[in-house]
Write a protein that binds this DNA or RNA. Structure first.
Lengths: 231, 231
DNA sequence: TACATCAAGATTGGATCCAATCAACAGATG
DNA sequence: CATCTGTTGATTGGATCCAATCTTGATGTA
């Protein structure tokens, strides 16, 4: 086992052991765990993924690993080269800008479609998530809460494929959110922006909501860009 | 072999035989051919995809078929249920509206990013594609030309992942473009819109270009919506 | 008749084995 | 000395076999 692969297996061990719910198939299990590992940063960009090593780490044969890698490839989380193998996609300033451009196009659209159909239950759930983020001490859990908050505001857009895309991009953004949090500290997690988004949604003001959302994403993008520039 | 699967194999036979370039792996071959078949309408929504039948039709074992199905699942072209099998995703008015919402968000953004960097070569290539569409008698080839025209205008956006998403959505739209063409005839393929988009791009007028593009997509969406309403 | 149960066939999921391809290195050759 | 080439080991791609699960239809019972 190579050094890189060994390190990958070790950092996976915790996630594998922590897999609470039993999945219906081994492929689902491997795919979900690997995706979490990549998005959370446990597997950093450039890490080679050897099928044999992964199979051993997960306690399955190479086959479910291969199918899981195929799906991750389609999600642009790994680079797959025939007869050579898979490597975790590198993160970079330009890739972050790419993700930002996609989010900037998709999320205001989803938000605008959703706002007219949001009800009191949605608003209170979003408010709860803001409170949860205020109280959450673990930075690694912040990504999921942030994602759920955003999705709770878009949920009534009535466009399942659009929402699936948005959720995927939000998850991809998690790889960069960690740097954002490290740079600004969690007290600057733009909770004011979140509250402003919720207020605008409550008021049914789609224009203001979209404007707040765009500036919210803009500041995050600027922070991350600065992070990459400074190293 | 079931009746549905037999029909699927028969409609695939032509595409399989017509696979000119040899792919590097059998999985690539199966995946590309199946995707083309689904997007072109050769495999219509709801068609069950039996692994054994596909393997026989492609002349390979079930394994590359399985890996190809995994990738198509990640592209939302098939629905995959564990232990039950894969089915070609159904098309519908609401799914068309979904695709439309996504395109409406992504394409104007890509267009605006690209316009400042388009050069004369890009413009002449786009003009050539308009001419090709005027001369193309085969409606089934129209989708590819339309896709290449749009992409030629977005190509300089400098955001590879954004462009990959746009290309995927344009391909998904091919499943509906066929109905659009059938309803309006090919002379109404909105070639005027295409020329207006190219003019605005040449003039560097991003606002006008985005406006033309949005209205272009809007008319297509309306036509397809009417098609679904009328049956 | 309606419904529940269970057995047989069909189909997919997973494991193991073999073939094809790639990377690295040793040796030959100009 | 540089470069090309052939060989070996490692890794992935593909095929075949077995296990697990689902579907379907027959059977029994209320």
């Amino acid at each position: 086992m190579s050094r890189d692969s060994e390190a990958a297996s070790l950092s996976l061990a915790g996630l594998i052991a922590a897999s609470g719910p039993r999945y219906r198939t081994a492929t689902e299990f491997v795919e979900a765990t690997l995706r979490t590992a990549i998005l959370s940063g446990s597997l950093s960009g450039g890490t080679p993924l050897r099928q044999e090593d992964l199979a051993e780490a997960f306690g399955v044969s190479r086959m479910p690993v291969r199918e899981a890698l195929r799906q991750l490839e389609a999600q642009a989380l790994i680079d797959f080269v025939p007869h050579k193998g898979a490597v975790v996609t590198e993160i970079s300033a330009s890739d972050a800008a790419d993700t930002y451009a996609i989010r900037l196009a998709l999320e205001p659209a989803a938000f605008a479609l959703s706002i007219p159909h949001l009800d009191d239950e949605d608003f209170s759930r979003a408010a709860d998530l803001i409170a949860e983020m205020d109280a959450e001490p673990d930075p690694s859990r912040m990504g999921e809460l942030n994602r759920r908050f955003h999705m709770s505001l878009y949920a009534r857009a009535g466009r399942p494929r659009l929402l699936a895309l948005v959720e995927g991009q939000l998850a991809a953004f998690d790889r960069y959110l960690r740097f954002h949090l490290a740079a600004k500290g969690r007290e600057h997690m733009s909770q004011d922006d979140h509250r402003a988004m919720l207020d605008a949604a409550r008021a049914g003001d789609t224009d203001r909501a979209a404007a707040v959302l765009k500036s919210h994403m803009g500041t995050a993008a600027a922070t991350i860009d600065r992070f990459f520039a400074e190293r």
